[in-house]
């Protein structure tokens, strides 16, 4: 009976070991700046188009759906604030993180996984580099820097999308919408909107690295690691967003 729990518990323990070693490696030299920039490029710049698209359309959808509900209370003019709050606090961070998890947790897991099964990780250690320093740390730092930026961009284009709906379909004026949106957001919202992507970034990069580094069993294993990384990262994003939301709502 206990055996059912043994392997997940061991996995979680290994994951936290990896996380601990990675955090401790962050201030330590060498820093491999080139690798950090390379990862910022693949994770940040590479994800930009799809993040723009999802952000924009989630803003549009939200404005459309909200306006219908708001109309029953005669409060269509509140579309701006509602779109802004929901996007900044919840939808922007979560959708961006899910998109980036799909793109990069899988990318990281498959890259490190192929390196693992072709003995490149072993070779790296044999040749005097610590894979945590050389592979995990740059991915963690790059994701932590890029995901909040991507989220801010997604929030902004989402609010713009909402504005198009508000202006053309709901006949709100430009200033009604933007002033409403601007005034609705306070520091707590902003903080929540930036804390979330930062934490999601840690989850995405470490989960990707974790499943990549423990890949075994050839190319099939790489496929398995990739899928697991995306599924596990996505689930954790949803679980954590609920927890963080609870904490911030209590504030």
């Amino acid at each position: 009976m206990l055996d059912i729990f043994k392997s997940p518990v061991l996995s979680i323990q290994e994951f936290f070991l990896l996380a601990g070693r990675t955090f401790r490696s962050v201030p330590r030299r060498p820093h491999y700046l080139n690798d950090i920039f390379l990862q910022m490029d693949t994770i940040g710049v590479g994800s930009l188009p799809i993040v723009l698209l999802t952000g924009f359309f989630s803003g549009i959808v939200m404005a459309l759906q909200m306006s219908k509900a708001l109309r029953t209370y005669g409060a269509v003019s509140q579309t701006g604030p509602i779109v802004a709050i929901v996007l900044v606090r919840e939808m922007g961070p979560v959708l961006t993180a899910i998109v980036v998890a799909g793109r990069n947790a899988s990318g990281i897991a498959s890259e490190l996984g192929s390196m693992k099964v072709t003995e490149q990780i072993d070779a790296m250690r044999a040749l005097g580099t610590d894979p945590i320093q050389k592979l995990v740390k740059p991915r963690l730092i790059a994701t932590c820097l890029m995901l909040p930026c991507l989220t801010a961009i997604a929030d902004f284009v989402g609010i713009c999308g909402g504005y198009l709906i508000a202006y053309f379909l709901l006949s709100l004026t430009t200033s009604e919408y933007w002033n409403g949106a601007y005034r609705a957001l306070d520091y707590v919202d902003m903080t929540e909107g930036l804390v979330k992507p930062f934490i999601f970034a840690i989850v995405i990069s470490l989960v990707g690295c974790f499943y990549g580094l423990r890949t075994s069993g050839g190319t099939q294993g790489v496929g398995r690691a990739t899928t697991q990384a995306v599924v596990v990262a996505s689930v954790w994003i949803f679980v954590l967003t609920a927890f963080i939301a609870k904490i911030f709502i209590a504030l």
């Binding site: 072709t118 070779a123 044999a126």
Partner: peptide
């Protein structure tokens, strides 16, 4: 890793990056 610096290794599948 300082000791390993004195050892060269060819891996079975070459393990080039």
């Amino acid at each position: 890793s300082d000791l390993r610096a004195r050892i060269g290794m060819l891996f079975q599948e070459s393990a080039l990056f």
